[in-house]
């Protein structure tokens, strides 16, 4: 077993049984302030490992795609090998931590809708906030990849938040990392544990790394409490969320498009002489009762080629609808 990478709190080894897999070991280290503060707490690795295994397993059950394969032992997971995007996605429901400090907000102020932010993974630069455009321009991810990552992050927020609410806990925010397989599938990677999320109980007490950051008590105890609470949840009762997907069908480049041409002439007639070209396509708004995953994208692709578009003459573009909610339209099955 060859050590491939040593991070602040994890070690990554090659899997002697398969080149496609890795073994991730959770150490007992805990850090804060970009590693400025570092301690060893015995048993922390095990609880983080078990929490991650439990939550990844839960997300997989709901249809999301993670790199998690199985738990090898107390502190180690077998995972799929992916190349990690050098960005972190953070999803926030309430203002807290760096977000609250950045905008001068009090901790706990609710946001009207969940918010996703991206940070560049760089210890030297202290993981700065990065915009979507910068990520794309720097070639760290394509726009389609970033859209997908964003949508998965929001879905994870829903599944985690709903699960935690069953045991009276609130999901304040959390961080996700993503990786790409050789096939181009994007998987949720790294870990989900008290280290990577903020969870508050009903009285506003933290069940996460804030206990360590702010020295508010025994961090191992709260990590274990969080794990206990998670074991009390009823994951089967969390319904699969409907995802709204927009499929844009456009005539391919070079294919004549009479409706667009007629529209152009009509606009000219109405005095809009600046109109040089109009291409008319169609938009389908689909509500899919299925988690956002590479498999879902594959099925949409199949829908496009088998029905929604004519591959001979039309190209398709898939987008996610943030404001869309499957419950908006009356479907009768809810």
């Amino acid at each position: 077993m060859r050590l491939i990478h040593e991070g602040k709190v994890k070690r990554v080894f090659s899997d002697p049984e398969s080149d496609d897999r890795l073994i991730v070991e959770f150490t007992d280290a805990i850090t804060a302030g970009d590693g400025e503060r570092r301690e060893i707490i015995e048993g922390k690795g095990a609880v983080a490992c078990e929490t991650t295994a439990l939550l990844f397993g839960y997300l997989e059950d709901k249809g999301l795609a993670t790199h998690f394969i199985r738990q090898l032992d107390e502190t180690r997971l077998v995972c799929r090998k992916v190349s990690i995007f050098p960005i972190e996605a953070v999803c926030r429901n309430l203002a807290a931590g760096s977000f609250a400090r950045r905008y001068g907000l009090e901790d706990g102020r609710p946001l009207s809708r969940p918010l996703v932010e991206f940070f560049l993974k760089s210890d030297e630069l202290h993981d700065p906030l990065i915009t979507a455009d910068a990520i794309i321009r720097l070639g760290l991810a394509t726009r389609e990849e970033l859209d997908f990552i964003r949508r998965v992050t929001l879905a994870v927020n829903y599944y985690l938040g709903t699960l935690l609410s069953q045991v009276g806990l609130r999901l304040v925010d959390f961080k996700l990392e993503f990786g790409r397989t050789d096939d181009g599938d994007i998987l949720i990677a790294d870990e989900i544990s008290g280290d990577t999320m903020r969870v508050w109980d009903e009285s506003g007490g933290s069940l996460d790394k804030d206990v360590f950051r702010k020295d508010k008590g025994n961090v191992l105890e709260v990590y274990n409490l969080l794990l206990e609470k998670l074991k009390e949840t009823r994951p089967k009762e969390v319904p699969v969320r409907g995802e709204v997907v927009r499929v844009l069908v456009m005539p391919k480049e070079g294919i004549k498009n009479p409706p667009g041409e007629v529209a152009r002439k009509a606009l000219l007639r109405l005095g809009f002489e600046e109109v040089e070209e109009v291409r008319a396509g169609k938009v389908f708004r689909l509500c899919l009762r299925r988690a956002v995953s590479p498999e879902m994208l594959g099925r949409i692709e199949e829908m496009n080629t088998r029905l929604l578009a004519n591959p001979i003459a039309e190209a398709t573009y898939v987008g996610f609808d943030d404001n869309g909610n499957c419950g908006d339209s009356f479907s009768g099955d809810e």
Binding site: I255, P258, P259, E261, I312, A313
Partner: peptide, 17 residues
């Protein structure tokens, strides 16, 4: 043509009507 038994596709008329 849509089911692939014949090649090609039938697009909207040039007049769009």
């Amino acid at each position: 043509t849509e089911c692939g038994l014949l090649p090609g596709a039938l697009l909207p008329n040039t007049s769009a009507r």
